[in-house]
Every structure is written in structure tokens, then in C-alpha cells.
Lab assay of single mutants.
Amino acid sequence: TFEVERIVRKKIVHGNTSYLVKWKNYSSKDNTWETEDDIRTKYGDLVDDFEK
């Protein structure tokens, strides 16, 4: 199971928000862009903290 360590960046393309996710126990080269809906479902607190 993958676990988010932190959110690195945010991008908005054509009105759709995605977050660059750093995965726990993986290197930064393994970071992936994930949709806001996918990340918010399980890691809403991390998204809220990133947006502060």
C-alpha cells in the first residue's frame, strides 16, 4: 500500500487540479501527479495543510 509523505506542488490544467505527491519510503524521482479528488478522498488533511 502506498502512503503519501507530503504534497510537493500543485498544478491546474483546464480547470482540473492535480498535486505532485511524494510517497513515503520512495525517492523523489518516484513522485507522481494525482488528481485532487483521488488525494482528497484519503488524504484531505494533507491537501488542506498544503493549501494554507
Rank of each mutant, 00 (worst) to 15 (best):
E36D: 05
E34M: 15
D30Q: 13
E36C: 04
E5I: 05
E5L: 07
T41H: 11
D37R: 09
I7D: 01
R9G: 15
G15N: 06
N16D: 08
D48M: 10
Y26R: 15
E34Y: 11
W23N: 00
D30F: 15
R9V: 06
W33S: 02
K42D: 14
D37G: 12
H14T: 06
V47Q: 03
N31G: 05
Y26Q: 14
K10W: 04
H14L: 09
I39M: 15
I7M: 01
R6I: 09
V21E: 01
D49C: 09
G44N: 12
L20E: 06
Y43E: 03
F2W: 14
E34I: 15
V13Y: 11
S27N: 08
V8W: 03
E3F: 05
S28P: 09
E36K: 04
I7R: 00
D45V: 10
E34N: 03
E51C: 06
W33L: 01
D37W: 11
V21K: 00
V13T: 11
V47S: 02
K10G: 03
S28G: 09
Y26K: 15
S27L: 10
E3P: 04
R9P: 01
T35H: 10
H14G: 13
S18K: 11
V47K: 02
Y43V: 04
L46E: 03
I7G: 00
Y26F: 14
V13M: 12
R6L: 13
N25H: 11
F50P: 02
T32I: 02
N16Y: 11
H14Q: 14
E3H: 07
K42Q: 10
R9A: 15
D38Y: 14
D30G: 10
V8Y: 02
V21C: 04
D49Q: 13
K22Q: 11
S27W: 05
F50T: 01
E51F: 05
G44R: 10
H14K: 13
V4D: 00
K10M: 07
F2Q: 14
Y26S: 14
V8I: 14
S27E: 12
T32K: 03
L46P: 01
L20Q: 05
K29E: 12
D37V: 11
L20A: 00
V21D: 00
S27V: 07
K29Q: 12
T41P: 11
T35W: 11
D30I: 08
T1V: 14
D38P: 03
K29R: 10
S28L: 07
G15F: 04
K24E: 03
K24C: 08
S28D: 14
D30S: 14
Y26N: 11
L20K: 02
K24P: 03
K11R: 13
S27A: 08
E51I: 05
N25L: 06
V8F: 04
N16P: 01
